[in-house]
Design a protein around this nucleic acid. Sequence first.
RNA 1: GCGGAUGGCCGGAUGGUCGCGGCGCCCGCGUUCCGCGGGGGUCGAGGAAAGUCCGGACUCCACGAAGCAACGGUGCCGGGUAACGCCCGGGCGGGGCAACCCGACGGAAAGCGCCACAGAAAACAGACCGCCCGCGUGCGGCCGUCCCACGGUCCGCAGCGGGUAAGGGUGAAACGGUGGAGUAAGAGACCACCGCGGGCCCGGUAACGGGUCCGGCACGGCAAGCCCCACCGGGAGCAAUGCCGAAUAGGGAUCCCGCGGGCCUUCGCGCCCAGGGCAGCUUCGGCCCAGGGAUCCGGGUUGGCAGCUCGAGCCGCGCGGGCAACCGCGUGGCCAGAUGAAUGACCAUCGCCGUCCUUCGGGGCGGUACAGGAUCCGGCUUACAGGCCGUCCGCGCAC
Length: 135
Amino acid sequence: MTPPEASQADRQVAAGAPPAVSFRMSVLKKRADFLRASRARRQAMPGFVLQARRRADDEPAQGVRVGFTCSKKVGNAVARNRAKRRLRAIARELLPREGRDGWDYVLIGRREVTASRPYATLRADLSRALDKVHR
RNA sequence: GCGGAUGGCCGGAUGGUCGCGGCGCCCGCGUUCCGCGGGGGUCGAGGAAAGUCCGGACUCCACGAAGCAACGGUGCCGGGUAACGCCCGGGCGGGGCAACCCGACGGAAAGCGCCACAGAAAACAGACCGCCCGCGUGCGGCCGUCCCACGGUCCGCAGCGGGUAAGGGUGAAACGGUGGAGUAAGAGACCACCGCGGGCCCGGUAACGGGUCCGGCACGGCAAGCCCCACCGGGAGCAAUGCCGAAUAGGGAUCCCGCGGGCCUUCGCGCCCAGGGCAGCUUCGGCCCAGGGAUCCGGGUUGGCAGCUCGAGCCGCGCGGGCAACCGCGUGGCCAGAUGAAUGACCAUCGCCGUCCUUCGGGGCGGUACAGGAUCCGGCUUACAGGCCGUCCGCGCAC
């Protein structure tokens, strides 16, 4: 079955405590946060699309927040889950180190590619995308 | 050995690094609820979790009962089950040498409707070709007589009148079938068998089967066109539903007054009549409403909590009943509860399948499916790499 908001089909994943960084990573869950992120900067890569924004003054200033979106365009439930889990894995690995405190990030999965692209390449993609988006 | 039929089962394994959701436990901090940090334990997708096609549980909504109507569904019989359109057994029909498989499988002598094309004719009989009988006007032949004319109880063709429906041919289907007897030719007009219908007897719980007697050939097909009959069914669904909290109201609750008309020796909301509403109509019973004021509560959306997972539960073994589906008893084991939604990411080794190479040790390359809970359960259907086990049938070979 599809999630209740399948037509939107965004996804979230929690992230673990980073080993050696001061700020913590938390999770985007509100639809409004996703909408705000989609209006900010975006960077398309072969395996995914990255959206990023610096939070406004009236929002929590501390920590990196991340959300994931895998719509039905990505495939059936199994394909969506796999894409989301791989995105979550690279985010957990890189964002504590390369993300910026006070920013929101959204990673959007792509059909076929997100699930099949070699892991090291996918990770390199995210590193480059973060670099471009911060510039 | 080859080919086939059928039932059941599995559907990757191990290890490492990092990580996620639920629930207990321990430590530290803050210590009022409760919250924060750390550690460790335990559980954590499927045979279809899928399609959402049936059946239920559960929740809310709808005034009750009976009858009728409408709508929808099911449709041989018996059994199983909480229930089913599911399952098991049986019957009948069809296919196959067989194992076995398939079947909307009640009713067409209640009614309506339809039956394309072809064909003479498609439902109620009728008659295109043909067959037979009669007539002998026409044409031709033959004969009387060699020719014309004329004639002939002769022959053929055409024509006219009548009989017939066996044969031809069309079609998915042709007004029972085969044979006999009969006839001018023919026909259920007659006879036998088969088919059809009815009565009786026997077997079976039944569907149905067997036997016997009688009837008359009457009754084409389609009910998956309408319809008839029997049985079943109220609606919506966990985004149901309940609770809590926060910002702006059409709403709701309680109380008070009031609330259609008429009757009166009885002024009592006592009696009579009436309006509207209560998912179609009728009957019976019952309930509610009508205008104003006061007070209180509180809402479309969002968030949190509950519902939320142990239940007609699943699996193994044993005993008992049953042909079986299944049921009973005992015993052991197992059972996730997320909610922007966990059950993973990556690496290594191995397994399995295909293919190529091989010095027969092995090696290279490729593949490893379909698909992931969202209230729960019983079915059905559909998808699926590769593989395992059993039973049966036919053929061939050996004995």
